[in-house]
Structure formats: C-alpha cells, structure tokens
Amino acid sequence: MISFEFPVNERTRSLLRLEQLYRRLAYFVDGEHANEHHSALLTLFELMETASRADLKADLLQELERQKQLLEPLHDNPAIEQHTLDGLLDEIELTTSRLLELTGKFGQHLRENEWLMAIKQRAGIPGGTCQFDLPSYFLWQLKPAEERRADLNRWAAPLMPTAGAARILLKLLRDSGKTHHYLARKGMFQQMSGGKVVQLIRVSFDENLGVLPELSANKYALNIRFVSAVTGEVRARQTDADVDFELTFCKF
C-alpha cells in the first residue's frame, strides 16, 4: 500500500513541510560525504525560510496547549494507557518550554552569521558555491566529517523545538484518523462533506496500480480523481479502471 496525505488548511500544510525538511536535514547530517553536508546546509536555509512566518511559534504553542487541555481529562478513562498518556503530556510540556525559550525571529542566529549568509546567497546561483566563489566554504568541506557534523548540529540546535512541536502535533492528528474503504469507479470518486471539517485527508491504495490521486475538498464535497502515474513523456490521464482505496479523515 502507498499513501498520499493532503492537508486541508494552511497550518497542516506548514506542519507537513516542516516534517519533510527536518527529516531531510537529519538524513544529510548523518552522512559522511561533504556533498551530503552541503545538502544539509541547504536544507537549513530552506527551514529558515519556511518557518520564518511571524505567527508560527504562537500557532504551535496555542495548538500544543489545546491538545494538552484535551488530553488531561483522559486520566479518568480506564481504556487509556496511563503511562503512555503521561509520557505524551510530559513531551508536550517539555516542547512547550523549549519553544517559549526561543527569542527573536526563527533562525535569527543563522541570519547573523555572515559566513553562512554568504553561502546562502551564492547557493541561489547555479554552481555558485564553487571553490573560486567561496574558498572558505571549500576549506570547511575538507574538514573531517565529524567536525562538519558538529557544526551542522550546532547551527540546527536552536531550530529543533519547532521540529518537536511539528512531530507531536502530526502524530496526534494522524492517530485521530478514521479509515473507510471505497471504490472509485473508472478512477472517479465523490463524497458530500456535510459540513464536516478535517485537517488532513489520507488516500491509500495498491502502489502497483500505477495511478496517482488528485484531490479537491471543501466543506461541501470531496472529489478524488485517479490519474496515470507518468513522468512527463506523456500526458497524465484519468484511469479507466476501478480503484479500490482507503480514505482516512484526520482532525483534532
């Protein structure tokens, strides 16, 4: 099975983008080659821009507090594993504290580093980080991998509370999902929403079908169209086959 997630609002869209960037950052930081650490640095710059929205921190804190208020009454529910619940609440509390400790604009410590900003500026030019453009960066790439990794972790450390908040909120959102089986006849499916509000929609199906879902949703209706998975040589077309799939609605 393969799954595609579709955010329904801007907050969920931001969380998914942050999740992808932090995963990519962790992957490249763990690498050994200078090219992997170059990719890690470019990802840091992407994170700096993606999370620079002024109200992001306030949004994360507000949602973490709301989830905490919803979870605390579950201590009286015998069907809930109390040890797991306590661990989650402790994690929310710790992440909230770390977010509150952040001062200034997200990634400000990176913006104040002239050396990093010079790399960021040159990275926007095709081939702009060559040895003759940035000799000091070339020397940094020649350092042992553990030294480069230590630098990357130091630069990334002030950004990590945001990663923790995104991870907690997306886990809670995904765990809330309710899944149903449907059949898209000749690749087309429509369902009236009846005013139901969700934050995330997940579509899952057999990856061997060679199709991709195209989704549009609002408070009135949900439309899914399955099209052929192509890479540009030919135009994508709606499949003529029936598609058996799972549809998951997630909301806090």
Rank of each mutant, 00 (worst) to 15 (best):
M160H: 10
T179E: 13
L88K: 05
I168H: 02
L212T: 05
L170K: 00
F245V: 08
E49G: 12
T129F: 03
V227C: 06
R122M: 10
T179Y: 04
N208F: 07
K68C: 05
P7Y: 00
D206E: 14
E36W: 09
I2R: 10
T103I: 05
F245I: 10
A229N: 13
V8E: 00
Q62A: 14
L200V: 01
H33D: 10
S136K: 14
L110C: 11
A58D: 15
W140Y: 15
R185H: 09
S14N: 10
V8N: 00
L41I: 11
G195V: 09
V227R: 10
R154E: 15
I125M: 13
L100I: 07
S176H: 07
D240C: 03
W140S: 09
G87A: 11
H37R: 07
R98D: 11
E233H: 08
R122W: 02
H180E: 14
N218F: 04
N208D: 05
E112C: 01
L64I: 09
T50W: 07
L200E: 00
S97C: 01
A236C: 07
L89S: 03
E93Y: 07
C130G: 14
R237A: 13
F226Y: 10
A165G: 08
L25F: 09
R202G: 05
R11S: 00
T84M: 13
A241N: 14
F28E: 06
V211M: 06
R66H: 09
L25P: 01
R149N: 06
F205L: 12
E207S: 08
N223Q: 13
L21H: 01
F252M: 00
A166T: 12
L247Q: 07
L200A: 03
Q190A: 11
D175S: 11
H181D: 15
R11C: 00
E91S: 04
N77G: 03
M117W: 07
S204I: 02
Q190Y: 04
R185G: 02
